[in-house]
Amino acid sequence: MIYLQLFLEFFHIGLFSFGGGYATLPFLFHIAETKDWYSAKQLTDMIAISSITPGPVGVNVATFAGYTTSGILGALIATTSVILPSIIIVIIISKLLQQFKHNPYVRSVIYTIKPAGCGLLAAVGVNMFLNNINLFGMVLFVALLILSFIKKRDPLFYLGVSALFGLLYSFVGFIK
């Protein structure tokens, strides 16, 4: 039953991803490795699309994966499932805001879970880097990295510049 599988996979992503939109990536790559819903290459394309379309990346990829596996209903189920844990958790916390903030166990779990989320994201970064980089990409990456050291910029700046260089690159005909 594909709908139930979509619900379970994306519900657990919504429940276990800590640290923002890109924190869903380790889970999404794990799906690519263990299920035949999409390949790692397709996921990389999806991430690129998500970055230049509206909305949080995690929601975009959920919609996309749901749609490619089982059409519009699949898209609805995957999208709802990924945000359902947030809806439940945030509403409960909003009701108990004061107790939640000062509970020592909650604070201790937050203390250990944040670096864990950071480690997961770093692992994804390393994997994506090793899978996608070539000489020209390395040059572009380092150039953008240096720009990021000089001044804090809008995320759209990096995406715009890199899209432009990608476009030029494809005209010169060096692509893969």
Partner: peptide
């Protein structure tokens, strides 16, 4: 389009680095 996606992929790597 493949060129643009390839480029955006590099941009995303930078965004992931900044998020980390």
């Amino acid at each position: 389009v493949q060129g643009i996606f390839w480029g955006v992929g590099i941009g995303v790597l930078i965004l992931i680095y900044l998020a980390i």
